[in-house]
Amino acid sequence: MIACLISWVPVTEHVKLDLVDGKVRAALVTDLHSCYYGPNQRWLTDRIDKEAPDVIFLGGDIFDDDLSDDNARKAIEYLVAKYPCFYVTGNHEFWSGRVDEMKAFMKSVGVTVLEGDCENITINGVVVDVCGVDDPTYMSDDQWLEQLGAAYAKTDSTHFRVLLTHRPEKVDIYSRYDYDLILAGHAHAGQMMIPFLNLGLFAPDQGFLAKYVNGLYTLDNGSVMEVSRGLSRESTRLPRFFNHPELVIIDLY
């Protein structure tokens, strides 16, 4: 029974990046899809508490378009009471037809919802510009680029600049901006990871042998992008192979 319970706790990836003068620990939570992580979501929230992050980035698809919002709400209500939380939408929130309701809930409990905006936070003496954009599911390219441009225009080159986005595949666009760190999800690591190659069998908006699915990538302009495998479980139509759900912890030094 103990082994069974442990198997349900998300694997934690620790990433250490020598990018700032100071120390910031961030948790990247993506693609929860309102999945179940124990009574009151404690398997997930206890794991996050154990890692003691300074800030939590919620990278979209925290809610689902089929499953009830209850599990997502329980996790968010607990986390926002303890940590600064920043959120961007994913495609499933738009597919639900209730994205405005979901954003309203996030705002009502104290989560910062980023929709083409940038907020400033100081953590252990490190000044961080946190930018975020909506998922472009129902946007034109021009509308989405307008959000990206508006958010970036509010950054300061002397600050550590983070872009929170759901989509990892738009690297050609992200490379136009001088972000230090880009955080994404969406790909579910290709659902079936190909061992030793860090490629996904198939990822949305990337197709077969998807490249941007898991871990760290350095873009052409030098920006670092971290892509989480996400936390989806019972919401997926296909089982995950070589691809455990994941909570990412990022240490910036």
Rank of each mutant, 00 (worst) to 15 (best):
T12I: 09
T218W: 00
R240A: 04
Y177R: 05
M192Q: 12
A184H: 01
A187F: 06
D135P: 04
G222S: 08
E169V: 03
Y83P: 08
S34F: 02
A210C: 08
V29C: 09
A203S: 12
V213C: 13
Q41G: 14
F57E: 05
Y37G: 06
E234I: 09
V248A: 10
Y152A: 12
A104F: 05
Q41I: 00
S108I: 02
W144G: 00
L231Y: 05
K107L: 14
I62G: 07
A151G: 04
C4K: 15
M1H: 10
D70I: 15
Y212V: 02
T30K: 11
A184T: 07
V55H: 04
N198T: 03
V111G: 10
D172Y: 01
T30Q: 06
S96C: 04
D135G: 03
T236E: 12
F57K: 01
P136Q: 07
N71R: 13
I48W: 06
K82E: 12
T89H: 14
N124P: 08
P53N: 09
H186T: 02
D172T: 02
H33W: 00
V213W: 02
G125R: 03
T89V: 04
A27K: 04
Y36G: 01
R240M: 04
V128P: 06
I123Y: 05
D205N: 15
L216C: 05
T158Q: 14
R161W: 00
E77P: 00
D69Q: 11
Y253S: 13
L183D: 09
Q143I: 02
P84A: 08
R98A: 14
Y212Q: 05
M139K: 11
N214Q: 10
K16W: 01
Y174V: 01
R25Y: 04
D49K: 07
Y152Q: 01
N214R: 14
H159R: 09
V128R: 07
V126R: 13
V9D: 10
E234Q: 15
Q41L: 00
V88T: 10
R73M: 13
K23M: 13
E234G: 07
